[in-house]
């Protein structure tokens, strides 16, 4: 069988539909990861061991096990407990939960990176705990975490093909659908690979720009 570049080209309209799905899953998942990661980070810092320990264990557990299996788990188990949402929503949630365990580590490193003297100075000025967080610690921690957080958008986008396992038709899923109609798989899969690569490299470039502009720690 020969490889026909025209087949790659023919698959492009389907790829664009798939790209939209992949970007939607990435976008929703990323918001979940950013918010849930912060929640995890705070809970792991809790003074109560009854909170910090189980959350720490859960985070390590989710981070050490495959996203694919987590996708299956939620896809099959959520309906059993009466939650029926679309596969795309399930996928975005699983993606967000998985990456929240990564972002929580990034937040933690960012917060730990703020010098101890900043806490002490806040105490010396009698700032409330909340004001210390919002006006002193977070403004210094966030610039430190921007580059790492940017990289996780790209990582999440590259994990979206796994959503095909729970019937979400993104680009790779689209390619397989074309293949099952035309009995030619190579060209549409190549098309999917090409689009993933181009978009991921583009995202990496944007992340580098963002990092250059906002990521520097000003002293």
């Amino acid at each position: 069988m020969n490889f026909e570049w025209s087949g790659v080209w023919d698959a492009m309209p389907t790829m664009l539909d798939g790209l939209l799905v992949a970007l939607t899953a990435t976008g929703i998942g990323y918001v979940i990861a950013l918010v849930l990661g912060l929640v995890f980070a705070f809970m792991r810092r809790s003074e109560s061991r009854w909170i910090s320990m189980p959350v720490g264990f859960l985070v390590e557990f989710i981070r050490s096990t495959p996203l694919l299996v987590q996708l299956f788990f939620f896809f099959y188990v959520l309906p059993l407990i009466g939650i029926s949402v679309s596969p795309l929503a399930t996928g975005a949630f699983a993606l967000g939960l998985h990456y929240a365990t990564y972002t929580s580590e990034v937040y933690r490193a960012g917060i730990d990176g703020v010098p101890q003297g900043q806490w002490e100075a806040s105490t010396a000025l009698n700032l409330s705990t909340r004001r210390t967080w919002t006006n002193v610690i977070l403004p210094q921690a966030i610039p430190r975490v921007v580059p790492a957080l940017g990289n996780y958008v790209i990582a999440m986008f590259k994990d979206t093909p796994q959503l095909l396992a729970i019937t979400v038709v993104e680009m790779l899923g689209g390619a397989i659908a074309i293949g099952s109609e035309t009995f030619r798989y190579s060209e549409p899969i190549a098309a999917a690979g090409l689009v993933y690569l181009v978009v991921a490299l583009l995202m990496a470039w944007v992340a580098r720009m963002v990092e250059r502009r906002y990521g520097q720690v000003r002293v």
Partner: peptide, 23 residues
């Protein structure tokens, strides 16, 4: 490094399993 970090591993797997044999 740039290409293989930009390429989803699942897609890479499909390429090796489905496309390479056609060559």
């Amino acid at each position: 490094t740039e290409v293989f970090r930009g390429f989803p591993s699942l897609v890479l797997l499909f390429v090796l399993i489905f496309i390479i044999p056609t060559f």
